[in-house]
Structure formats: C-alpha cells, structure tokens
Amino acid sequence: MAIGVLAFQGSFNEHIAVLRRIGVKGVEIRKPEQLQNVAALIIPGGESTTMAKLAEFHNMFPALREFVKMGKPVWGTCAGLIFLANKVVGQKAGGQELVGGLDCTVHRNFFGSQIQSFEAEISVPHIADKEGGPPGFRGVFIRAPAILEVGPEVDVLAEVPVPDKVKNSDIAKEIQEVNPECLNKVAVAVKQGNLLGTAFHPELTADSRWHMYFVKMVNDQSEEAKIETETETETSSNIIKSGDSSALQDPKIELPIYLP
C-alpha cells in the first residue's frame, strides 16, 4: 500500500517527489473510492478554498471524514492543516467546508498576503529527536495559516514568534478574542494521535525529515493494525519495504528546490 496525496490542486507533485526521494510510493487521490487503496493521506498546500470547492464538487468530504475517523494517519500542510482543523477563523464569506478531527483553532491567512510570506529557521526538537539531523528546520511560510489554540490532546511540535507586522494589523484583534497568548508566538506544527498538521511547506525544501516522520507514523499505525487483525489478510502490511524500487522509477520531473 502506498501513501495517498490529495491531488485536486496545489503542491501535490512536490509531495510525491519527496516521498519518491525517500523511497515511498505516493499516489494521486482525486476520487473518494481511491482512498480505499492507501494506508495514509497527505493533504498538500495550495489554495484551501479551491481545494474545498473541488472536494465538494466530487463529494469527497464524507470519505475524508471517514478516513480520519478510521484512525488512518493524515498529514495536512498549509491548506491541508486548515482542512484538518476543527475550527477556522478568517475564512472567505460563507465559510468553507472542513474535514476536521484536529482539535485546534486555525487562522487562515494569519501571516498576511504574499508580500509578508517568509522563510524562517524554526526549532523542531521533536523531529530532531526522532529523525536526527540539526535541531532547526527551514520553514517556508507562504500566505500561511497559524494555530491559535490547541485542545488538551494536541502536542505542539513547533512554534514561531509573531512578526511585528502581524501584531500591528487588524488580525491582532481577532487573535485577542481567541487566545491573547498568541500575540507573541504561535504554533505552526501540531500532532494529535495520527493527525499531523504543519503551517509551513516541508515539501518545498530538500530536508525530508518531516516526510520520514510521517512515514514512521504510518508504519507504526499499520503495525498496530496488524496486531489487531492478525487473522485477516495482509492488506495492512507495512507500506514501506526499505527502498521500494518501483516507487523510484517514476520518471516525472519536478521543479527544482530553491535555497534562500
């Protein structure tokens, strides 16, 4: 079994390219029935409004909610994080449909428009613990959301200080209402059970530690499933047999990774 990447719009090619780099097969998901063939799902970055609209046209939301409910690992980056959140502020008029499951409040365009997009070295002690490498990670924030408030079962994996520009903008007022503590720093990566959410884009960097971390979550999950359903067939076997060669032979070309 492979890892599915929701391929309505956005950086799904980039996610599949990173998975390929670490020897895991990524599959594009565009229809509800395709979800049955994957062990886990990545919801990529993109325009969350666009992705929600397309998911709505294709009646994808019930299937996605079911997928989350079954406890299968799901990772949302940027727009994907918005999808997974239980509550979103700063949405378009009329709101947008969400998958939900991650007990947190997300602000949609917390860091402002493109001109306020930035790169920052963020501290990721948890990832460095599990995957090794340096304690920092190059986070690319593009019209990024932020996590204002988390429930008791949610672990915060990374935080960034709030840029001065945001502090002085109208958004500050909205933040004040939700959680005044967010005026200094906000969470940008969270984990709750098998749900992972990041406000930045690990798929745009050469560092694949977040993807390896997610793959480990998937492997742990399938291991558990195996123990529970020992008598059943091998459908839930480990998705990654070290260096799945067929996954590496996909000739599709990807965009280069730009360094700052």
Binding site: G10, G46, E47, Q114, V140, I142
Partner: peptide, 27 residues
C-alpha cells in the same frame, strides 16, 4: 549556483516567490 539573485533582497528570497506559484499549480 545555477540561479543566483543579483540583489541582496533578503526578506523575500526567490524560493518564497516561486513557492506561491507552486501553491497555484493545478489551478
């Protein structure tokens, strides 16, 4: 150094500029 920027524009590197375009892919 295949793509090097000629300016010292630190706040908004080329990677962030291309990044937004990447988020528009398939749209």
């Amino acid at each position: 150094g295949a793509i090097t920027e000629t300016s010292t524009n630190k706040k908004s590197p080329f990677s962030v500029k291309v990044g937004l375009a990447q988020m528009l892919r398939g749209g």
